[in-house]
Computed example of a mutant assay.
Amino acid sequence: MLRNFQAAMDLSKLPRWFPLWAVLGSALAYAFPKYLLEARASIVPLLGIVMFGMGMTLSGKDFVSVLRRPGMVFLGVSLQYLLMPFIGWVLAGMAGLSAGLMAGVVLLGSCPGGTASNVICYLAGGDVALSITLTAVSTLLAVLATPLLTWLYVGERIPVPVLALLQSTAKIVLIPVILGLAFNHVLGKRLETVRHVFPVLSMLAIVFIIAIIVAMNRNQMGELVAGLLLVVILHNLCGLALGYYVPRLLGRSEIESRTLAIEVGMQNSGLAVALATQHFSAAAALPGALFSIWHNLSGSWLAGRWSQRSVGEKDE
């Protein structure tokens, strides 16, 4: 029976169904918003569950790979934090979004790699070890990078509480990840029978966060979604494209380029939603909510395409 349960919860199937869950959750929230409005205070705790679950998938060995491949890690993190906030700022400006929505798009671009990127990377035939390392490093750097980049791009248009944003990012990202690492280190093999449950909980938590944000923005969505959705789609596609082609132009292998494309293009939208809700407005959280749906759709599609194409050996 346990084997049947584990097969049913196979991580390789999650990206295939997660976009559907997100769309269904959003549709239910739009149709019945009153049932979710009272749950807005649960966004941050739910995100803590997501980050804790990611920490449970990591170990000290994952961080050792940073020393072995500093060039690729540096390139991936640089593309993540230099390109994505800048692209978001440019697209939001070109689309004429309001100051609040622009803050949300830039904040989204300033967040680390998404928690689902490792699973998508595996299905796409990427380098899972590199993916985990990039996610871990960008997540830890988010304590400083996310609030500082947000202040750099939107500080003149909206007062950004840098210190409060820094403290919130540290609390939401750092503590749950460290706790997850600690549990993984202490309990080790005793967690093997339940480890597969944590990604499932993370996915469900993100779906619930998306639903809450949709419910909070239901009245404004008719006016905001059209232009904002285009910005969100282009933001993600630019990240995927540049994350792939820049490494290729620099002579990196196909497998490494796929990995960087996914890490750069898939943001931690749950973190963006939580921070926008705390420090800006419900409307500023809408870019993250829309991105949560779209980047899993595009990532799943890309993984399906790439999984059908063979790759060469990665560069030494």
Rank of each mutant, 00 (worst) to 15 (best):
I178L: 15
I178G: 03
I233D: 02
L163N: 03
M216C: 12
I209H: 07
I209C: 09
H185E: 10
L179E: 00
L187M: 12
N219K: 12
L224M: 15
L242W: 10
M203N: 11
G227I: 09
F208C: 11
L174D: 03
P159I: 06
L165H: 04
A226L: 14
I233H: 07
L179V: 12
L174G: 04
V173F: 00
T193K: 11
G222N: 07
A215V: 03
L179Y: 02
I210N: 10
E156V: 05
L149N: 00
L242S: 10
N219G: 08
L191C: 09
T193C: 01
T193D: 10
H235D: 04
L229F: 15
V162S: 04
M221G: 02
Q220Y: 11
V173G: 01
F198L: 13
H185F: 10
Y153H: 01
I172V: 15
R195I: 11
W151N: 08
I172R: 01
S202A: 15
V173Y: 01
L187T: 05
I175V: 15
L230R: 13
L165M: 15
H185P: 00
E192G: 04
I233L: 14
I158K: 05
E156G: 15
R195T: 12
P147L: 03
I178W: 05
V231I: 10
N184C: 08
F198A: 11
L163M: 12
N236C: 09
V194T: 11
L179Q: 03
R190S: 14
L149P: 00
T169I: 06
N219Q: 14
L224A: 10
M216N: 12
T169G: 07
L240F: 15
I175F: 13
W151C: 02
G222H: 08
V177N: 04
V207Q: 07
V231Q: 01
T169S: 04
H196I: 14
P199E: 10
G188C: 07
S168P: 08
T146M: 06
P199C: 08
N184I: 03
Y153C: 00
T169F: 01
T193F: 04
L237R: 10
P161L: 07
L229W: 14
I172L: 11
G155V: 01
P159A: 12
V177F: 02
L166F: 15
E192H: 10
L148Y: 04
V194A: 11
A205G: 08
N236D: 07
Y153G: 00
F198T: 10
S202G: 13
V154A: 05
A164E: 14
L166R: 03
F183T: 14
V194N: 05
L224P: 06
G155M: 02
I175A: 12
I210H: 06
L224H: 13
P147Y: 01
M203K: 10
L179H: 03
P161E: 07
L229V: 08
R190G: 07
L165D: 01
A170G: 13
L237T: 11
L148W: 03
E223S: 14
L191G: 09
V200G: 05
G239P: 07
L230I: 15
A241K: 09
P176N: 06
I209K: 08
I206V: 15
F198S: 11
G155N: 03
I172A: 09
L165K: 03
L148R: 00
V162Q: 02
L174M: 13
K189M: 02
L163Y: 05
T150N: 03
L152V: 06
I158C: 07
M216P: 00
L228Q: 07
V214W: 06
